[in-house]
Amino acid sequence: MKEKVITIISNVTGIPKESINEDSNLLTDLNLESLDLVTLIAELESEIGKEIPDKDIKEIQTVGDIISYIEKNA
């Protein structure tokens, strides 16, 4: 799952996979803008086949948070 999530983030943002790790903060380390963030959420939903509610987005701050969220909810 970690590899898949990092690949999706890399595809959405154009950031090389090698520069992304579980501790990367989406806003402060990867500098995601809000449109990048919702694009990422939409791509992840498509990948896991399940909706991620808006209220849950606030809880997602790092790449590791995304991986944990998917593992818990997919």
Partner: peptide, 10 residues
């Protein structure tokens, strides 16, 4: 830009 998946969801 244009993001069709974002349009569809949001």
């Amino acid at each position: 830009c244009y993001k069709p998946r974002v349009k569809d969801k949001y």
